[in-house]
Design a protein around this nucleic acid. Sequence first.
DNA 1: TTGAAAGCGTTACCAC
DNA 2: GTGGTAACGCTTTCAA
Lengths: 343, 343
Amino acid sequence: MKRSRSNSVTLADVSRDAGVSVMTVSNVVRGRADLVKLETRRRVEESIAKLNYRPNLSARSLRLSQNRSVGIVIADTDPAYLTDPFISRLVSGLSNYLSGRDYTLDIQGVAPERFENATILRKAGNDALCAILCGPRQLRKAHFEYLQKLGPPLIVFQEVFQSRAEHVALVHQDDQAGGAALARHLLKRKIRSIVFVRPMLDWCAVEQREKGLRSVLAKDGRQVEVKTLLAPTEGFDDVQRTVAEYLGSRVPDAIVSATDSLAGAVLSACESRGLSVPKDIAVTGFNGFDVWRYTRPSLTTVMSPAYEMGSFAGELLMQRLHGDPFSKHNTIFPVSLHEGESA
Amino acid sequence: MKRSRSNSVTLADVSRDAGVSVMTVSNVVRGRADLVKLETRRRVEESIAKLNYRPNLSARSLRLSQNRSVGIVIADTDPAYLTDPFISRLVSGLSNYLSGRDYTLDIQGVAPERFENATILRKAGNDALCAILCGPRQLRKAHFEYLQKLGPPLIVFQEVFQSRAEHVALVHQDDQAGGAALARHLLKRKIRSIVFVRPMLDWCAVEQREKGLRSVLAKDGRQVEVKTLLAPTEGFDDVQRTVAEYLGSRVPDAIVSATDSLAGAVLSACESRGLSVPKDIAVTGFNGFDVWRYTRPSLTTVMSPAYEMGSFAGELLMQRLHGDPFSKHNTIFPVSLHEGESA
DNA sequence: TTGAAAGCGTTACCAC
DNA sequence: GTGGTAACGCTTTCAA
């Protein structure tokens, strides 16, 4: 048995069965109908079906030096990295756009401190790369530089770095404007103190939200006091405990949560402290997809175009891979305030 | 310029730069430290760093006839197919297990009626395949047969088909037992009528939940009436509208929802009808991850080991790809009832 | 310890 | 319309 462990059927096998040359089979497989006589094509197609032939992607990639695949690396400390609603929508959008163009998506989650070990980055197997970073700014910057040096076209989501590299593009939503919109909304109430709740782990988007929030408050004449409260993780229990503890000593007029899931835990903490939302305290979320509908009161939050960002990135990459330069190197998607009952 | 569009650095380039043979470089790259003199290795490593060399995965795959990659195809009508909390956890678990073994995960969502068109299935580029099916039983069965014929090792999640094929394994949770547990829990109350709410789209898991529910109720002496209510989609608004309409004409003693997100919409419908949960009506969910924490009242639901199912599948595949047969062809993960406030 | 050559399955190119 | 040949980048095998 000459055959390797994978009992793959090759073009040669089909050509032998159909009594034609390898090239003819190849032409049939790739739909070059004009190059093959109808009768021959029929015979070849029969053999293909009979032998259950599937083209070998590695061989094709090697020959064409293009893989028709894109890789995405997602830095996160949570093993269940895809459960984040922003990420799952972004990846869905990207994946679907690529599928439509007959491209494949390779996906890998990785702990921030092991970022550069990601298989997708160490081996060259994708025509382009995407990434979502997290961790201290310094580290994210280092990872960004590393990614740039790799070579293939690169799209980084939710970062605000500058890059002059021709093969790099940034796609993010306007988190700063989102934070600002929340601030303006809260300022309609009689507010003197705000707590911004966020996880310990750094995300650029969260920084931007806080920045937008604080900048509007700073410009306001009312001298609103802003504190930042760090939860050890994004887990429901951790957040609830952290907030409940804080509320034990003092109750701010509003709690701005870095994400909707955090806000869910915040609501729970308020409830357990006997605080009525929004009467006693206002609560807001961020990146509203579904959670805001489930909570009582429903959440005031900022809507995110995560799915669209993913598919837009796919579109950008397809252009770039088909010969054109990136049409945009820095794309900012607008967000919109959703007024629920919680603030 | 001989070089192809992708300006890739090859082993030959490195070997030229380092003044050694291609094989020596290959040995260095693959960590065969024992085969290379320390000094030579140093020189080669320098060249690798200098030239920014990354091994070409296609070439290696072609030569070795193994790709070190697994593909997963997920049938769903929802474009944002990864947002389903069960799926996102399952895929995270699988992806992480594979990453740890230096395997890559190719992911693709596909509409059920276009299932067989999925790139991942049409081209042979993965060492193994995973799938999650949906749609009418007939169609799922057809897709299952199709997948089996493809050849590579295959794991199908959340299906109850039988297969004698050596290269096929099934992994699912005990949805039937989950449905039964919910039924038994509800029977503790004075219950005469139950409505099972599910989306129009067929999922094997949902069928199993209903089956478990009905079988326990059927065995009970109290002649509980069970109706099935179909929501056009799983979308919050669709479900809420469907349920609210139903409640307009009659109010059952309990509503069993096919998933937690459905249950969220059901709660909302009850609220809008002025019904108090669980006093006036009991409500349950399924596949509890986080949603049950956010709702008020919190949901009574069934906890799912989705993440573990994913990583277990990865483990099974690794064994199979490294020479052993599948150790289990049909694995059923237990689920557990979570008693919240809603029932 | 290092090197040369063959071949993995496919496609571009050029003959027939 | 069809087919032969070379080459894509890598690793296995065997020779030096």
